[in-house]
Design a protein around this nucleic acid. Structure first.
Length: 464
DNA sequence: CGATTTTGACCTGCGC
DNA sequence: GCGCAGGTCAAAATCG
């Protein structure tokens, strides 16, 4: 998100001819310091204050569309009436004021985005740490089964209070409290649901052996989870004419394949920024719309990332972590009907989808649609993929497992549809968190901005 | 000349 | 077991 530098500069330098108190002023060095100009303007530009004063009186409007009118010629020529000059001055002063206001607003928004990003990263770090901590501490407890699938807030409420009282994450606390309250709601009804279908807790991609394990969580499972995090994928759909979106990382192509059902080849890249970095990505154009570039990231970087890459990396990493955080063997992975209370909440569709048919959990961030267009998502994705409109990736593995189970247990046939509804409802509960959405959107925006054809020259990607 | 891309061969998992 | 498709490897080609 590179900001344009000084608007004054860009405006001023792009206007070779300007009006100064109604007089023509050619903006080059000769005119700038010429004696007659000084006489006309009765100003001596010796310091910044004077320069600023001059700026306030220079009409930088190009007025490109009405240049040839006789009236304007007269203005550009011998000078205009005092009324017209004052009018222009007022107009320009108003525009300048608006410009300053917009700059201030822009700066404020940038600060807010930075703050949200910082909080998001801090929250994510805490989440990972707390997950590890709690799993080690409670590894032997059978009651780990009582952990709800919505395990974003792994820390207890007391822990949250302690952490957030430090003042760094006060805004996040409300979010966590919201999640916590949802957790408790789910917990109260969880037992019944689990009795109905205990095996639903285990997503397919956590391997079938997991289903035979006890609900307790041990170190082996933690390591397995970490390996799954590495395998979790985050896919980004974005419109781009370039062959790759710019994510700030350096990639080395190691393969290309023609995928079935898609005339466009799929390219395979490895991160070449760090030696032995396990991160890989696949780039392929959509078969339905070849202007859409689908980039799938896998793994976590093992090296320091440049600032330009942090947004993407943190987003994909967080998505992958969250993907797994809701699918631990110890978590029941169940979606209780209570969460349907949130089913009508907005902003639950289109921003992200999740392909449950993939061998590994894959969350898709769809940047090709507007957030309000709720119906196109399902149209764009093959229905057989069971792609759900999700921002949170937590639920799809469970959904897939459910769909699989539904084929195994015919008596549960009606559950699939209701489960899909439940998934969407749960998604709505998560996606209405404006802070996570803001952080996600900040990262996504940076990606979109950098993927613009004009800016691809700044891209570090060395593909093609 | 080192880094990167290309591309055919090979490996692996999955469904039949 | 066989075939298919996805993913990876590695030697050759290309690039800067």
């Amino acid at each position: 998100m590179e900001e344009p530098t000084s608007n004054h500069d860009s405006v001023t330098h792009s206007s070779p001819i300007m009006l100064f108190d109604g007089k023509t002023l050619v903006m080059d060095e000769m005119d700038f310091f010429a004696d007659n100009n000084n006489k006309k303007n009765k100003n001596v530009f010796h310091d910044d204050e004077m320069l600023h004063q001059m700026e306030l009186h220079v009409d930088t409007s190009l007025d490109l569309l009405t240049k040839s009118s006789p009236t304007d010629r007269s203005i550009m020529g011998e000078g205009s009436s005092e009324a017209k000059g004052n009018k222009r001055d007022d107009k320009f002063a108003a525009m300048l004021a608006e410009l300053h206001h917009m700059n201030a607003e822009n700066q404020r928004l940038r600060d807010e985005v930075d703050q949200v990003n910082d909080k998001y990263h801090a929250l994510h770090d805490q989440l990972v740490k707390q997950m590890e901590k709690q799993r080690k501490n409670e590894g032997k407890k059978v009651d780990m089964i009582s952990r709800p699938f919505l395990d974003i807030g792994v820390a207890t409420k007391e822990e949250n209070s302690q952490q957030y009282s430090k003042g760094k994450l006060q805004e996040s606390k409300s979010t966590m409290d919201m999640i916590e309250s949802k957790k408790q709601k789910i917990c109260t009804n969880r037992e019944v649901t689990e009795l109905e279908a205990p095996e639903k807790a285990i997503p397919r991609w956590l391997s079938n052996e997991v289903t035979t394990r006890s609900s307790s969580f041990n170190v082996d499972e933690a390591s397995e989870t970490m390996s799954m995090i590495k395998k979790a994928r985050v896919s980004v759909r974005a419109r781009s004419v370039s062959s790759m979106i710019s994510d700030g990382c350096q990639w080395r192509k190691y393969g290309q394949k023609m995928a079935k059902g898609n005339p466009c080849p799929r390219a395979y890249y490895r991160c070449s920024m760090g030696t032995g970095c396990p991160v890989r990505k696949q780039v392929q154009r959509s078969a339905e719309d070849q202007s859409v570039l689908i980039t799938t990231y896998e793994g976590q970087h093992s090296h320091v990332l440049p600032p330009a890459a942090k947004a993407m990396a943190s987003t994909t990493s967080a998505a992958a972590s969250m993907l797994l955080s809701g699918s631990m063997p110890s978590s029941d992975g169940l979606l209780h009907p209570n969460i349907l209370e949130s089913a009508t909440l907005p902003f639950s569709h289109n921003l992200a989808t999740l392909s449950a048919s993939a061998p590994f959990p894959t969350i898709t961030l769809d940047l090709t649609q507007t957030p309000t267009n709720n119906n196109t998502s399902s149209q764009q994705h093959p229905p057989q993929d069971y792609q759900l409109s999700l921002l949170s990736p937590l639920f799809a593995p469970n959904f897939f497992h459910q769909t699989k189970l539904s084929t195994l247990h015919a008596s549960q046939g009606t559950e699939t549809a209701s489960f899909a509804d439940t998934v969407n409802a749960a998604t709505a509960a998560i996606t209405t968190d404006p802070k996570f959405s803001a952080a996600l959107m900040a990262a996504i925006t940076s990606i979109i901005g950098s993927s613009h054809p004009v800016e691809t020259q700044h891209c570090n990607n060395k593909q093609e």
